[in-house]
Design a protein around this nucleic acid. Structure first.
Length: 325
DNA sequence: AAATATGGCAACCGCGGGTTG
DNA sequence: GCAACCCGCGGTTGCCATATT
């Protein structure tokens, strides 16, 4: 069995450290930040409860993890969300619902908590106002569902899609639905963290075909036509940058189809080429800056299924006007 | 100027799932 | 196989700053 744990069985922090002293809660002091930052920079990420103990913090590991991920991580992007990021969040939310971590995985430098807060405080309100125009689904009161939040902004077809696949309040989307969603999302680029979104006009977000295909910035409004959404699928070129798909489809040994991240490890193609990436999960740098979260995305492998079944099911989706060959 | 309302953000809570011994 | 442990996620709460009355 494992060594005695400092946290409760369900993962919540207990109130005391192993030495019996009281665990701190609430806001972090600059001293605590320093301790955690120094420890992480020197030792990298390990077991969070060890981090808390070894860094000399009267905090539970969970609290340390949260502080690091949401605040101290050096690769975090600070400041307000750019309009482009905002639109991408809205679009991803329409596809993924409240899967903040998946949305955050496509917005390097942003945390799920940040996006969640931004959504709840700003976007939700704005969309509510803009959707005051009666929509076909206006009678539905479950405002957290994408189709409702988007109100009149969504096409009927998309509302149908959302109704079919994104009703996260009831049951999880089926494997097939998730596969379809992943394919829909696939062409979305990773946002280059070093690019100042607010200053980019024609370079990054307006020009790339992969974005206009999605319709995020199309003249039709926030949500354009999904025709061509699945076209290409091999990433997109943004200026000199190549944005590979977040994940791609590969065949496992047993012939089953898996979705896995295939971000290009070639430093020449890698927009994060200042970061050491290898396959060793204990790589200090990777762990230290949490790059794994962005590079590997979170593990978006969503399961394995029969390829033929999948293709048959996907191609029969009534609301998708594309054909799987 | 004081009281109140609102917004934004940081952090906590509880759960589920994966890993380990 | 089981239980302890760890991690990550989404929901929620509480605090602080700012705006409004």
């Amino acid at each position: 069995m494992r060594k005695p744990e400092k946290s409760t069985a369900n993962g919540a922090c207990s109130n005391t450290t192993s030495t019996g002293s009281k665990l701190r809660k609430g806001l972090w002091s600059p001293e605590e930040d320093d301790k955690l930052m120094n420890y992480m920079l020197n030792n990298g990420q390990g077991c969070w409860s060890d981090v808390a103990r070894n860094a000399g913090l009267q905090r539970c590991g969970k609290s340390c993890r949260l502080r690091w991920i949401n605040y101290l991580r050096p690769d975090l992007k600070r400041g307000a969300f750019s309009p482009q990021e905002e639109e991408l969040i809205i679009h991803l939310h329409s596809l993924l619902g409240n899967r903040w971590s998946q949305i955050a995985a496509r917005l390097p430098g942003r945390t799920d908590n940040e996006i969640k807060n931004f959504w709840n405080s700003t976007i939700k309100k704005r969309l509510k106002n803009s959707s005051s125009v009666p929509s076909p689904n206006a009678s539905d009161s479950s405002s957290d569902q994408p189709r409702d939040v988007m109100g009149g902004l969504m096409s009927m077809r998309e509302q149908g899609l959302m109704a079919m696949y994104m009703d996260s309040s009831s049951s999880p989307p089926s494997i097939q639905a998730m596969a379809a969603l992943n394919q829909m999302i696939e062409p979305l680029p990773m946002l280059e963290p070093s690019v100042d979104m607010t200053s980019v006009n024609s370079g990054c977000f307006n020009a790339p075909p992969c974005m206009t295909q999605v319709g995020i910035l199309s003249a039709e409004g926030l949500y354009g036509d999904h025709v061509g959404l699945l076209g290409g699928g091999g990433g997109c070129v943004v200026g000199e940058q190549f944005f590979p798909p977040v994940e791609s489809i590969s065949m496992g040994e047993n012939g089953n189809k898996t979705l896995e991240n295939t971000f290009d490890r070639n430093p020449n193609n890698n927009p994060y080429n200042n970061v050491i990436i290898n396959n060793n999960s204990s790589n200090k740098v990777e762990n230290m800056v949490g790059v794994g979260n962005f590079w590997e995305g979170e593990d978006l492998r969503i399961g394995e299924w029969n390829l033929e079944d999948l293709m048959r099911d996907v191609s029969s989706f009534p609301f998708l006007d594309f054909h799987v060959e």
